[in-house]
Design a binder for these strands. Structure first.
Length: 279
DNA sequence: AATGTACACAACCGCTCTGGG
DNA sequence: CCCCAGAGCGGTTGTGTACAT
């Protein structure tokens, strides 16, 4: 790890400019002091925490050590195949938003996922002929991604899609914001969270939902739905139908899930994404 | 056995965002 | 509106270790 003599090669001063602040690997004793202090006093006020706890570390270092290593909920060890698949899907949706990705994988930290991505998954994708940044084939001539061992969910397109199967050939969909600008995956948790879905059906573009993602929980559910194999994006849009109850908030759901009968469903019975997609 | 190389991951850095005064 | 401190994020680096020569 870094030693005091190996500090940044730039001329900028490090965050811990104080002489005498210890850097580099944490000792078991330091871990114990930090963990005991946080258990006793709680976390926060990182800048002053080292002094209060009696550590010769900077606040940032303490925070990092706690968040990435000492927290009781941190799960360490081998990344399971299902976790790996989830990381792949989330990265395809969110890009290098490690904290956001980590937030959806219980017990894993952003640092751990970032490291795992850089040391394992990016190389794995490259070996499979996939650009790890775009999740698209490195060689444009290779279009059949089913040979590339990507789950169906990771193939979902956020813009207009035309992938036969999950997205019908004649019905394409895109997510747009309130200005009708296409929302890319990297924009999903940015400032504009009013998203609606535009679906092309029979030559016409229909608006299927809007005003979603007004708060973190709803946005969180929206992300869930995007990465869920059984979620909306895996439905064939040819099966979409609208509720027509005039005096109730209308929402859409895939017909294949409920048949063509009159809907009489509680919110709990609706697909997760649909719960929030009124218009 | 000695040396070199590649890899994994903990830790650091600079930057941005947010909220309070 | 501005300033500042605190917190958090993503990119990068350094070191220990496993493996190859």
């Amino acid at each position: 790890m870094r030693t005091p003599s190996s500090s940044s090669t730039t001329s900028k001063t490090p965050c811990c400019s104080k002489v005498g602040i210890k850097r580099g690997p944490w000792t078991p004793k330091e871990d114990e002091i930090l963990a005991n202090y946080i258990k006793r006093e709680g976390q926060g006020k990182w800048r002053t925490l080292p002094k209060r706890a009696g550590l010769d570390r900077c606040g940032k270092s303490c925070r990092l050590r706690w968040m990435n290593y000492l927290r009781p909920c941190v799960k360490r060890g081998h990344i399971a195949p299902d976790e790996e698949d989830l990381i792949l899907r989330l990265h395809r949706l969110l890009g290098n938003r490690w904290a956001l990705i980590a937030g959806r994988i219980p017990g894993r930290t952003d640092n751990e996922i970032k490291n795992y991505w850089n040391t394992h998954l990016s190389k794995k994708l490259i070996n499979q002929g996939i650009d790890p940044r775009t999740h698209k084939p490195l060689n444009p001539n290779i279009s059949n991604s089913s040979n590339l061992n990507i789950s169906s969910a990771t193939e979902k397109e956020m813009g207009f899609g035309s992938r036969p199967g999950a997205i019908g050939q004649n019905n394409h969909a895109k997510l747009v914001d309130c200005d009708n600008q296409v929302v890319n995956s990297s924009d999903l948790n940015r400032s504009n969270r009013e998203i609606k879905m535009m679906v092309q059906q029979g030559g016409q573009e229909k608006e299927y939902c809007n005003k979603i993602c007004d708060d973190e929980d709803i946005f969180s559910s929206f992300i869930d739905s995007l990465i869920d194999d059984n979620g909306f994006f895996n439905q064939d849009f040819t099966m979409l139908e609208e509720s027509s109850e005039a005096d109730q908030p209308r929402c859409w759901y895939p017909m294949d899930a409920f048949g063509e009968e009159q809907y009489n469903l509680t919110s709990d019975q609706l697909p997760r994404f649909c719960k929030y997609t009124y218009y």
